[in-house]
Write a protein that binds this DNA or RNA. Structure first.
Length: 442
RNA sequence: GCGGGGAUGGCCCAGUGGUACGGCGGCAGCCUGCUAAGCUGUUUCUCGAAAUGAGAGCAUGGGUUCAAAUCCCAUUCCCCGCGCCA
């Protein structure tokens, strides 16, 4: 949620931010209209309550002295009628206003590139030595900042679905039979590789001062709506029938809401937490995209980094999160690039977002594997997470970034590490897998 | 799931219908020849330019009443016991 006081006092910057994101500024007009009415009503309502309180106290006094109070009673009843009427009106206005204010997106950071379309996000940097099929070279060059760090392949590498079948690493058909499309059974060494990735990430983040944890995989509406932009997010979430519970779409949701309605001491910050969890996504609206294999699925595992910090530190921590994620992919030796997501593509919580995109040789593309966002105080305000300062309580800033989304990294490893008759295991993972290659059934 | 007990400000705790007591901690100031002790104020949210201005707030949502932390109903969570259970 944005800062309502700032919204009232500095309308222009919100109109500019909404326009840059491609949001309809009518929501702002509507907000101001409702807010005006709300404040007027509140004044009247508070005056009525003030009168009522005075009379009520007088009644208490008179009763002590055994004086007659019938007249006073009647006047309170009359005031109560007015209060009730106005309260109902006020409640409706407030509900509508609060619904709208949640639709207003966070203010953009000044470094976010302004754009409307998909392809305008800004290239930041490239790392690694990509294996590039000769026909994909133009695309690679164009999207890697014209890097010359690549190895040309004359034959198109196999796609991950073929590799899954070739080495008997997944059963997607039977998963489809029992659950539907976009589900999978992970098998054999690929499954062990996933466990290795999880353990590797857990160790990695522990060493970088994160408290690692397994969060609840379901949370209630209040937490979910605080942690997300729920109105637009709703359709991508799974709801549990008969209970006030939603399956999480990322560990960010429980990690963020973990501290909801709390006031922290200044010296507790920053708080670095990391969550390992499955992520459940309906992928509504993704029909036809990545339908084969395990690249885009309804359930995948992810290790997420999350930081609560003071506002003045949050851009440093943004860099820290991105660096952590980058260091993981450097260590796994997966080629990647980083892009600064442009205004039209940015989620409404984020003031700025960097994506890390891995190189997938058989797709001949960079695809998203990490999303790092600084939500500034937007999420903290919705969740009511504050810290104490000399000048009163302030909202913390929250930041999140993927460490490893395992299914996408498994695909990246399969594609980048395929050899003639086996899949090589990245060196840093061998201590975790206990084997150095995937060859077949075991 | 059943029975019993509970939820009060950052924390602890008092409060059986008349508008939330006290302590601890934090912050600000005062005093004191000094890492102590003491004193005063302050501590949540909202409206308001501000007030020595007002309203709200006692787990949540309803109800009774002129008036509810207090009485009634429902819900949530925590503790104890029983049952069930990986």
């Amino acid at each position: 949620m944005i800062d309502i006081k700032l919204l009232r006092s500095d309308k222009k910057i919100f109109y500019a931010s909404c326009r840059a994101r491609g949001f309809d500024t009518k929501i702002l007009d509507k907000f101001f209209e409702l807010d005006e009415k709300w404040r007027e009503n509140l004044k009247v309502l508070n005056n009525l309550k003030h009168d009522k309180n005075n009379i009520t106290m007088e009644i208490a006094k008179k009763m002590k002295n055994n004086e007659n109070i019938n007249d006073l009673k009647n006047s309170v009843e009359a005031i109560n009628d007015n209060i009730n009427k106005l309260s109902i009106e006020q409640k409706n206005i407030e509900e509508e206003r609060n619904k709208i204010i949640r639709l207003i997106p966070n203010l953009l950071d000044k470094n976010v590139p302004i754009c409307s379309g998909d392809e305008n996000s800004q290239f930041i940097r490239y790392y690694g030595k990509a294996r590039v099929y000769n026909e994909d070279l133009d695309y690679f060059k164009k999207n890697s900042g014209n890097s010359d760090n690549y190895e040309i392949l004359d034959e198109k590498p196999e796609g991950h679905l073929d590799l899954l079948n070739k080495y008997n690493l997944a059963d997607i058909e039977r998963a489809g039979k029992i659950a539907g499309s976009r589900f999978y059974f992970l098998k054999n060494r690929l499954f062990k590789l996933e466990l290795a990735l999880i353990n590797y990430a857990v160790d990695f983040l522990s060493q970088r001062n994160f408290t690692v944890m397994e969060p609840p995989f379901m949370i209630n509406y209040s937490s979910m709506s605080g942690a997300t932009d729920i109105e637009t997010f709703k359709e991508s979430l799974y709801k549990i029938e008969g209970d006030d519970l939603y399956l999480i779409a990322t560990a960010e949701h429980p990690l963020a809401s973990m501290l909801s309605n709390e006031i922290l001491n200044e010296d507790e910050l920053p708080i670095r937490v990391s969550g390992v969890s499955p992520c459940f996504r309906r992928e509504a609206g993704a029909h036809g995209k990545d339908t084969k294999g395990i690249f885009r699925v309804h359930q995948f595992n992810k290790i997420e980094q999350f930081i609560f910090c003071k506002p003045e530190d949050s851009w440093d921590f943004f860099d820290e999160l991105v660096k952590n994620s980058e260091d993981i992919y450097k260590s796994l030796e997966i080629p990647y690039r980083i892009v600064n997501i442009c205004s039209g593509e940015l989620g409404s919580l984020a003031a700025k977002k960097y994506d890390i995109e891995a190189w997938y040789p058989s797709q001949g593309k960079f695809r998203e594997i990490v999303s790092a966002s600084n939500d500034t105080d937007y999420q903290a305000r919705s969740l009511n997470i504050k810290y104490r300062t000399k000048d009163g309580n302030k909202f913390v800033n929250t930041l999140n970034s993927t460490a490893i989304a395992t299914e996408r990294i498994l695909v990246a490893i399969l594609e980048n590490y395929q050899r003639d008759n086996y899949i090589k295991i990245p060196d840093v993972l061998i201590p975790y897998t206990g084997f150095d290659r995937i060859v077949g059934d075991d």
